[in-house]
Amino acid sequence: MGNQGPSEDFVRNLVAYQESLYAYLLTLVPVREVARDLLQDTCVKLWSKWDDFLPDSNFLAWACRVAYFTVLAYRRDRARERTVFDNSVLEQLAKVGQEQVAESPRSAVALDECLSALPQQQRKLILERYSADNSVQKLAADSGRSAKGLAVSLHRIRQALMDCVESKLRSEEV
């Protein structure tokens, strides 16, 4: 059989689930730079296995599995650094992470709406936090607030967004 390149389905899925895969990896390895690198490695592996993918099967489940093994390999190489959860924890997180990211395309749309619904000050603060590598320390220095207080405020906003997104997803299901 000649190698005719990846199927449309494969490419569409790979593109569509980039953010979901990133969220999954960040759940397992909560360091953004590392999660980004692992995303690249995962994509390389997925690409090299594209003809293993069956068009009507669950792409995200397959991709998460590949991502999980990529994380395990990463952990194996850096076991002494103690920067990654234990394998037993990773296994547990992999399960909940996969369940969570299965919702992520819908969640992303809901998140946009929930962001719009936030009070202006809160929306500005949370978006600033995620803009151009801003850190809480930097925002605190700029605003004259304490870093700890600001971190708590951001945490509350994230919680509010979580509640809002879940509420929207639930109302869609009804």
Binding site: T27, V96, Q100, S107, A108, L111, I126, M162, V165
Partner: peptide, 11 residues
């Protein structure tokens, strides 16, 4: 945690 990180990643 998984839901929290999902929001974190999406943002």
């Amino acid at each position: 945690y998984a839901r929290y990180v999902a929001i974190h990643a999406a943002l």
